[in-house]
Design a protein around this nucleic acid. Structure first.
Lengths: 222, 222
DNA sequence: ATACATGCGTGCAGGACTGCATGTAAAGTA
DNA sequence: TACTTTACATGCAGTCCTGCACGCATGTAT
């Protein structure tokens, strides 16, 4: 029997229960959607009582806010975990695959539910914005390191955000029940396009001089 | 006083009430989100009673299903309405702008709410899938006509769906509260990329031979 | 060992929403 | 004009969810 069999110290108990609640929250979001997610069900899945939940997170909104950070952390781990620093000629395609995998899993589904809910929930949105922003930044950072000096920073950012948005759209399509084959095809096409764009170092911008680079990167997250 | 001041015939009354309810439903989806949308509020906004609603749509699910079709119709009108058949060298950029405008308005926001809700609501999803599929097809058709024979059909479809997905992602970003300047920048970049892709008639595919074209186009809609 | 703090369970009240049953007025029909 | 159908309103019941108060047990400090 491991030393983790049953938490004896308060700190351990606290951490375990909180984690159980937050994981259950994410599960609920994935399985039932935001509107179907109720504290009752969360507690049921976590194997805890309403009282326990209320002890740790007084209100439902508080629980959701905490779930946001928990989710961001797990997403970050997922991205970092799958990043195998692809190098070589096909590295861009691999990077896109990576982003796609990261943004089409269960965690991202939960994030989507939260974001859509946050649209009409001021409090939730305030909780999510900074967390999501930080996640976006750190993810971009990972790719920036992986790219090294091969790619101008600006070009990389453009491709990164375009890819993020394409994958977001494809993730939605997958949610909806779109054709997987079509998604795969589009992803392949996008890889080819992104690769060729990345390689054309001197490609002209939208019109003549390219617009000023945009600072202050906001939310990806999904 | 127009002849429409107060509907006298039953058929008219019916059509008016139904339209009022469905429009109110869409308004609610935009303002309150799916989880915040309640039949009570819908009736309040429509200026009708619960009884009236129930007379036309027995259950809430039925009302939502009808709202889906209503929404699709309005979206289709919107797309058709703004389509001014842009021709000339910059037509691709204009077309992308069009798609973006169509997919980032209020109606699309409502559609997004419905789609996200449909993910965990089998019944709603069954209602939405065919409607959305038809909408996607007809929209693509519009662009196919606009493009004429200038662009290979396959290339057009790829660009169309990629654009749809990019705009979907950007629409999400807008919802969330992302930076408008960044979205504008990304849209410009995408226009440039799409244009260059469209013009390079002989650009190689993902690898050597391009994959078989994918049939059976499913859902865009958002 | 005693007193306090923390983690957690149970029961209840208030509120909200959906669905139904009943009633009334207006439109259509013979 | 008398009768039927349709459109719409009102009231009520059942259900579900959230938040709170209280009670018990287990850690923790002195």
């Amino acid at each position: 029997m491991s030393t983790e069999a049953r938490p004896r110290t308060q700190r351990e108990r606290r951490a375990r229960t909180r984690a159980a609640l937050l994981d259950a929250t994410i599960d609920c979001l994935v399985d039932l959607g935001y509107s179907g997610t109720t504290v009752q069900e969360i507690c049921r899945r976590a194997g805890l009582s309403r009282g326990a939940q209320q002890h740790h997170f007084t209100t439902k909104a508080e629980l959701m806010a905490a779930a946001v950070e928990h989710l961001a952390g797990r997403l970050r781990d997922e991205v970092r975990g799958t990043l195998t620093a692809p190098q070589g000629p096909r590295r861009i395609g691999e990077a896109i695959d990576l982003l796609w995998r990261g943004f089409s899993g269960k965690l991202s589904t939960a994030a989507l539910e939260l974001w859509v809910a946050a649209r009409t929930d001021e409090e939730l949105r305030r909780s999510m914005l900074p967390v999501d922003r930080a996640l976006g930044r750190s993810t971009l950072e990972i790719y920036r390191e992986a790219a090294g000096a091969d790619l101008p920073a600006e070009r990389l950012e453009t491709l990164y955000w375009l890819t993020v948005n394409v994958t977001r759209g494809l993730a939605l399509d997958a949610m909806i029940g779109g054709d997987p084959a079509r998604r795969a095809h589009l992803l392949d096409e996008w890889k080819a396009i992104a690769t060729s764009v990345a390689l054309e170092a001197g490609r002209p911008g939208p019109r003549s001089g390219r617009p000023a680079p945009w600072k202050d990167i906001p939310a990806p997250g999904l």
